[in-house]
Design a protein around this nucleic acid. Structure first.
Lengths: 145, 145
DNA sequence: CTTGAACCTCTAGTCGCTATAGGGATTACA
DNA sequence: TGTAATCCCTATAGCGACTAGAGGTTCAAG
């Protein structure tokens, strides 16, 4: 019926300190304790932690997960908000991909410029790292919105 | 000839506290100071900071930048190391892209599952966030090597 | 000579954990 | 019942790469 934090960790693949951290951050409810002050969890905590873990794997930041959990507690609310969170995350993922693809292109160009020139003095790689004007594109990190 | 930290910031687009941080971390040499203890920079510092900034824009972690700078100070060394750093970074960028593309696919699927079902009770988006078995692929974050 | 902008150092906060220290609880087995 | 192994507890500090703020000093222009 009840199980320890170690059991919960084993069943979900989430590490023990991380579980305690989620509790402190309010993503997991504080569970009952034994007389000796140890946490004892139930099936519903397993579900909740599985939800959190999947959201984290999908890259959602913790405030977004908090919002989704709150939403899950109010079954009558419209699910527009959940959809908005998913869409926002999708957009952010796409922006990060776009940025990384530019980096990929520049880094390809930079590594290709190494003709085995042997010493640092005439090293195109070092030159390329130093000089943005050699780049085809802008590629500065996006100011996170 | 010499200029202040604010000037250096303006010319490179790197913020003043960040410049001080780079100095503390050993990426920038400690510059000369005025009698009143204010930093005064020269052209070479501008070049160095430009190099650092471009590397950061390309996503290089600070230890890699440190290595490149060290390398630049020893013109006789082979540039193999610089090439290796670039190649490593390229690989890491490619891995991150691969991961994000999986997330993108799952998030597309999740957002598409919202048929405007109106309330949370029958919200496919929330279900999808909670249940990895609905996903087509593995998409957990890669354990960073 | 005064004003106001720019500078100084130091500390703490960001995010999502992870690691460690220094202890107490539980469980399995003899 | 004793004891040893393994678990669990709290609290604090660290990661990377900055950013923000407090509280005080110096510089440059008028």
């Amino acid at each position: 019926m009840d199980f320890s934090i170690g059991e919960l960790a084993k069943r979900t693949g989430v590490k023990v300190p991380t579980i305690r951290y989620y509790e402190k951050e309010g993503l997991l409810d504080a569970p009952l304790r034994t007389q000796g002050n140890q946490r004892r969890y139930r099936a519903q905590d397993l579900d909740r932690l599985g939800f959190i873990r999947h959201c984290r794997d999908l890259g959602l930041p913790m405030p977004a997960i908090r919002d989704l959990i709150d939403l899950g507690q109010h079954p009558d609310k419209p699910c527009r908000e959940a959809d908005r969170i998913a869409a926002t995350q999708l957009q952010s993922v796409r922006e990060r991909i776009a940025h990384l693809r530019k980096l990929e292109a520049e880094l390809e160009r930079i590594t290709a410029s190494c003709k085995g020139g042997h010493t640092v003095t005439d090293c195109n790689v070092l030159k390329a790292f130093g000089d943005h004007s050699l780049c085809r594109d802008e590629h500065a990190a996006p100011t996170k919105a």
